[in-house]
């Protein structure tokens, strides 16, 4: 973490995007950007690597599918075969259509829940965790760029942020 950071606040996501572009041109090092909602294209501008969450989601989905197949096979075929609607359950394949909704649901369930848990773990979020954002207004209507201020002077950064349309600029020593 940088010894000294600058927080520049913006009112609009398009203005923010332009400011991030300007920071890139100046080669300022952006530590983090806090936004009230996901801003399309911001990750690319910040040079963040592409998320690998999608790969996790696919694997979790496969796990869910496997669990569903194993579970239905055990419950409905092996352990206690039942005759439902004139369709005796002695073969998994012959009863497959009845199990498809469950297979689908568990695939989605596993993918969704495990993905959320993975996301929380990866973002280091857990219950009762203290918020990391510098100002709670970034959860409301403000966009904030957190910049490494150890390499450039305060006046230089202040005038730079003013020029990009920032409404408020703070400096903070860590």
């Amino acid at each position: 973490m940088a010894s000294k950071v600058a927080h520049a606040y913006y009112l609009d996501d398009e203005v923010l995007m332009d400011a991030v572009k300007a920071c890139n041109v100046k080669h300022y090092h952006i530590e983090e950007v806090y936004t009230p909602f996901p801003v399309h294209g911001l990750d690319k501008l910040m040079g963040l690597p592409h998320t690998r969450l999608a790969i996790c989601a696919f694997i979790y989905g496969l796990i869910g599918l496997t669990v569903a197949i194993t579970m239905m096979n055990y419950i409905m075929i092996e352990d206690w075969p039942q005759n439902i609607g004139g369709k005796p359950s002695f073969s998994f394949l012959e009863n497959l259509p009845a199990f498809v909704p469950i297979m689908f649901e568990l695939t989605v369930f596993f993918a969704a829940h495990l993905m959320v848990i993975t996301f929380y773990m990866r973002s280091r979020l857990w219950p009762f965790k203290k918020a990391e954002n510098p100002n709670e207004r970034t959860t409301d209507d403000l966009f904030c760029i957190e910049l490494d201020a150890s390499t450039a002077g305060e006046e230089e950064l202040t005038s730079f942020f003013k020029a990009t349309g920032a409404v408020e600029i703070n400096f903070k020593n860590n």
């Binding site: 609607g85 004139g86 369709k87 259509p97 009845a98 498809v100």
Partner: peptide
């Protein structure tokens, strides 16, 4: 496709 198939398959 499957919704149509499954209901008809099940009710027979």
């Amino acid at each position: 496709w499957f919704s149509q198939f499954m209901l008809i398959w099940y009710s027979d």
